[in-house]
Write a protein that binds this DNA or RNA. Sequence first.
DNA 1: TTGAAAGCGCTACCAG
DNA 2: CTGGTAGCGCTTTCAA
Lengths: 324, 324
Amino acid sequence: MSKRVTIKSIAKDLGISHMTVSRALTDNPNVQKETREAVRRHAQDVGYVRSAAAGTMRGNVSPIIGLLVPNIRNDFYARFANKLAEECEAAGLQLIIHLTKDDHQIERHCISRLREIQARAVITVPTPEPKELDQITDVGLDEIQLIRKRQTSPNTPAVLVDDALAIRDAVLHLHRTGHRRIAYLGAPVTLSSGRHRLDAYRSGLKQAGIVEDRRLVLTDSPSISMGNRLTRKILSETDASAIICAGFEISEGALKAAIQTETLNSRLAFVGYGDPDYYSWIGRGLCSIRVPVDELAECAISLVTSDKPREAEFKFAAKLIIRA
Amino acid sequence: MSKRVTIKSIAKDLGISHMTVSRALTDNPNVQKETREAVRRHAQDVGYVRSAAAGTMRGNVSPIIGLLVPNIRNDFYARFANKLAEECEAAGLQLIIHLTKDDHQIERHCISRLREIQARAVITVPTPEPKELDQITDVGLDEIQLIRKRQTSPNTPAVLVDDALAIRDAVLHLHRTGHRRIAYLGAPVTLSSGRHRLDAYRSGLKQAGIVEDRRLVLTDSPSISMGNRLTRKILSETDASAIICAGFEISEGALKAAIQTETLNSRLAFVGYGDPDYYSWIGRGLCSIRVPVDELAECAISLVTSDKPREAEFKFAAKLIIRA
DNA sequence: TTGAAAGCGCTACCAG
DNA sequence: CTGGTAGCGCTTTCAA
């Protein structure tokens, strides 16, 4: 149909040079007032929008930032992405969301795509267990790690959750309410977050005077199905009376398993992770480790907009929410 | 630091023409095998990625599609966006998500931004009540309307939900279980979806032999707060024993109100809209009108990839899920 | 106050 | 098989 509207086409329409059009459109003072207004009016009329591609090619920083998350169905990621998108809107940024499904291959591919469009930055939840610990080190664009920290890239800022106290509190709370057989479901210790959370659990046990039973500690690459599977395993193979979930997806899967097996809060006390709204609506409410989502998102976006700090860790404390 | 890696920089490195590099990188047969491999190896080594901007400027269709939704915290939008993002990944597309908050101004601004980057298409949930019914008509890029249909743009494909039967079934179900005072919460009839849903409710009443009580029918621009507010109003000002929510956000707000006032399923039978997983976990489960999210997303994305049908409506049937 | 030229990275189109 | 040229839309730099 109609060709693309460019400053040149406008220039031709008006019988002037495309430079004058450019100047008029960028509020350059060196244009006759009438000319400027005529240009703007005509541009409006014909529906001109400037080409971002041309700008990018000339070296403009792109307004696009990438978000790499496993999914956006999980309450935490959805909330984070939502908050981030709001902040982007306010900051005049555009947010591209890529779902990695925690797959290392996909992750690399997405980063490549973001490089192609010269995205300004990428906020990423690093996939667990990068089998090939090498190459990913330099992603080739500004990277901000979220929640998890890849050990191989020490120069990258990271926005992390400090959940040690909350997890310890969870153990202590369960102990106070009579539980002695407290199971733990988390990521493997090869992930830094997996290690720290397990340490916190152990510190809670110690403080409560409970001796760790290794059969009650199950770790694997975190996912919904992992949470579901291992919860059933705990229910069928152990005498655990309580379970602590140390991860968003894990918590989601574990909750489903507990509900499906009808053991929730009857046979099995549940401490979730992430605290979606509906946790307080199930039964008389579920205990949960609440993560300050909005703060995380604000911190992440501020790292994008103010390009000050390289190589830094920002930690936000999680909090145990007691219910039921 | 290091300058951008381009085909020219590679060409210089290798002492050949940038054209040969281009050909090698695009699998053009007219390159010596050795040359091609040398080029590819070197490109790999120096971390070359082709510039999407350059491509776009030459007229390549952009791989970027936009999604305009009120938010992605609501279960339905989160699921839709998630499915869409998955499909995009599979189709080699990149998904930019803009949150409109159902604000007409924001919506227009977002579309403008998407035009600047020459997005391939935009999938949009039109904001309700565009006060200025004019200009928005031509968004200037391929548009696919979702869930709601803007009356002013008849030439745009729309992916819609046909919930008439489900809503009528909800009324009949409530009637069967003894309810006579059935309230309805929905969008205003100025929205096509608002009109159709209200009609369905009325058709249900009629079939059940119930005379409509206008005090039990509350409509307003749909939002969470609207759902919350009007539910409280119904509880305090009427003798309704049941409520049907005709909209995602409405359902979310209404549920919160019912739970906060502790009237859920005791004083007030609840029929939600959208059926998130946790609806089945609350109490003995909540009735709900389930919308086929994945089908909607698949349809939308297929409209983007196969550029066949202009001006068409695709309807997907919702279904009443009975619980409790 | 205006215009012309150059160049950002890339490929279709011609010459060799 | 390989290399040069031109041009996508825009702004910076220089010239009028």
